[in-house]
Nucleic acid binder design. Structure first.
Lengths: 377, 377
DNA sequence: GTGAAAGCGCTAACAG
DNA sequence: CTGTTAGCGCTTTCAC
């Protein structure tokens, strides 16, 4: 059975909700009494505002410590009309949540930033758009949270307007490089990493560089695709074929087969995430195409496994934890009516490992590789 | 800049906390007035208790719908002395959170169960034991949550006692097979999967089956190690060497090298998780040991990548989402003073893929393999 | 069946 | 600088 609220069980049925007996919860009144001051004095001290003498202050703090008292979050929330909590709604099938290395780290970062700022993080996982909308509405109507994070932005996302209508403050979490991003976006430069990857491949002599994209309609999918294309154009190369993926291993494998089936198969593929890239490498191996000697592969995310697959995966890494922190701090500032600080997030980093190499000699169309010494690490 | 609480900005400084102008928040009073009843009637309807006539009930519901009103969670929490929220404290370095496929799924499951039961999920990520303890204390003292989940149980975990002292209801999330588990544990049968794996290897003729364990001191590490050992003994085999790992890829690689360096290297290794197993396969490949022809490998978790590495990974899968749901339902029952239902969680499942095969002919010490036809997924 | 009134524990005006 | 007082929005007895 499950541990009840009461540690010493007497075997009685389903009973105890609260602590038994007389032990009333200690309140601000008890602290005030013990320190010989008024409740407001206690309140003032615990809200860090002036107007309380040093002596009284000391006594109050001592009394609170002795009684082991902390302001009750519920009462505080009610009287300040602020929940002192931030909401994160994640729209994704629960089973698929662990496909994505982004969320665990992002949640960790957001939580760390939130609790540093004195806010709690309320999480909700919803399967579809309808449930997502309801979740935001409930957060707003029930005043459960003071603001929310918007992740997984879609092209023409309706949520910003909805949240404005609900008067629910928010920050948009997204790649910073999108040309038409809405104001209020906190993101790091996704595109830079992809561009760096393309340059790296070009420097290795690759001329047919394909892309396996993420789920269409998502901003981060688009940003990565655009970055890939723009950099190819900038290098004077023709944008190779693009295959739409959906960030799953199955899609990565399928897309890879599709690309290698072409009459002019690419010599390098830039995948929109590591999971697809690794599945792609397996697919290549299955048909006797060797990485990196026959085909170079680049991923995105730098998942913990990336260094440990065969061959180790060249990829792009972002500091997602720090990103999450920055989002939390920005949202707190917004909620409290302050102008959020402009934070400089580190750009995505390009990590060179074993899955990229020189273009196969018999496939290199012409010219010698440009010079390019990636920093990696 | 970040989107403020007010959609139409007039360029003023850091100002608006709440909605501007006259638009007062609609309250239960407004609904009562509009429906021509008292506040308590409204309250009764929204709390599903008898004592309100059908006609009044209809009008109340209509009024609430028209005014778009839902009970304010803060006020409700205060007057009912219940936060209507559940807490999950995760102790882990933020950067390491994505190493673990467990949490994203577990969180998703817990959240789904919580919101089905009308509870919010408050998450906190803490780096160490001290912060963890403070987190629980704050949850309790500030009445932020009504109960908490205890994950990553350690041998001789102090938290159960602490929570009892704080009068904070809780459920323990852990493998169900631990012999000395505390009452109130919700878990599925971790050990069954590992035992199945050992039997599978034995059936393939393996006699020297090693184990790469998880972080020592954690219940789930111990349970898996014990299951491995017990099954070997049950099969009449000598427990092979055990190397301690820490669930990271680096540890998996190191441990594998250590095992293969021995004078009597194992022909099969059971790893405590997939990440170590995959890194172990890479380590083996690096030294020319081939999987599965020279070495069989079994993981644990069935991460999304498991089918897509080379070779695909034989592993153990649990329905972590369902597990999380069950935990949430049990905690809600506990919090509300009911006896939690005894839920039957599906046992861990053994998934046979490409990383396990017959013992190498020249290494099979004696006898012919027993018959064992694993079911797979 | 319905409504008035007293809290829940804290914050924040406003007097003293 | 300190204390008194009126809420915050909802729940819940308890008379009517």
């Amino acid at each position: 059975m499950v541990s009840p609220a009461r540690p010493v069980s007497d075997g009685a049925g389903p009973a105890p909700l609260r602590r038994p007996g007389r032990e009333r919860k200690v309140t601000i009144g008890d602290v005030a009494a013990r320190a010989n001051v008024s409740k407001s004095a206690v309140s003032f001290v615990f809200n860090g505002r002036p107007g309380v003498g040093e002596a009284a202050r000391e006594r109050i703090l001592a009394a609170a410590r002795e009684l082991d008292w902390r302001p009750d979050a519920r009462a505080r929330a009610l009287s300040r009309s602020r929940a002192q909590a931030l909401g994160l709604v994640i729209r994704r099938a629960p089973e698929l949540l662990s496909n994505d290395p982004f969320f665990p780290q992002f949640v960790a970062g957001v939580e760390s930033g939130s609790s540093d700022g004195g806010y709690a993080l309320v999480l909700q996982v919803v399967p579809d758009r309808a449930a997502e909308k309801r979740a935001y509405e409930r957060f707003a109507h029930e005043s459960r949270v003071d603001g929310v994070f918007l992740t997984d932005m879609r092209l023409d996302d309706e949520r910003v307007g909805e949240l404005d209508r609900l008067w629910l403050p928010h920050v948009v979490v997204g790649p910073a490089a999108a040309s038409d991003e809405p104001a209020g976006t906190i993101g790091l430069d996704d595109a830079a990493g992809v561009r760096r990857a393309v340059r790296h491949l070009s420097a290795l002599g690759h001329r047919r560089i394909a892309h396996v994209a993420g789920v269409p309609g998502y901003v981060h999918s688009e940003v990565r695709r655009q970055a890939w294309e723009q950099e190819l154009v900038a290098l004077g190369l023709a944008p190779g074929p693009v295959v739409e993926g959906d960030f799953t291993g199955a899609a990565g494998a399928r897309a890879t087969h599709e690309l290698l089936d072409r009459s002019d198969p690419p010599t390098a593929i830039v995948f929109a995430n590591d999971l697809m890239a690794i599945a792609g490498m397996s697919a290549a191996a299955d048909r006797g195409v060797r990485v990196p000697s026959d085909l170079s592969v680049v991923g995105y995310d730098d998942i913990p496994l990336a260094p440990y697959v065969q061959p180790s995966l060249t990829t792009v890494r972002q500091d997602v934890v720090e990103w999450g922190r920055a989002c939390a701090l920005a949202l707190i500032a917004t909620v409290e009516g302050r102008e959020p600080d402009r934070v400089a997030l580190p750009a995505a980093e390009f990590v060179v490992r074993g899955s990229t190499g020189p273009v196969p000699a018999d496939r290199a169309p012409l010219g010698r590789p440009a010079d390019d010494q990636p920093t990696g690490r």
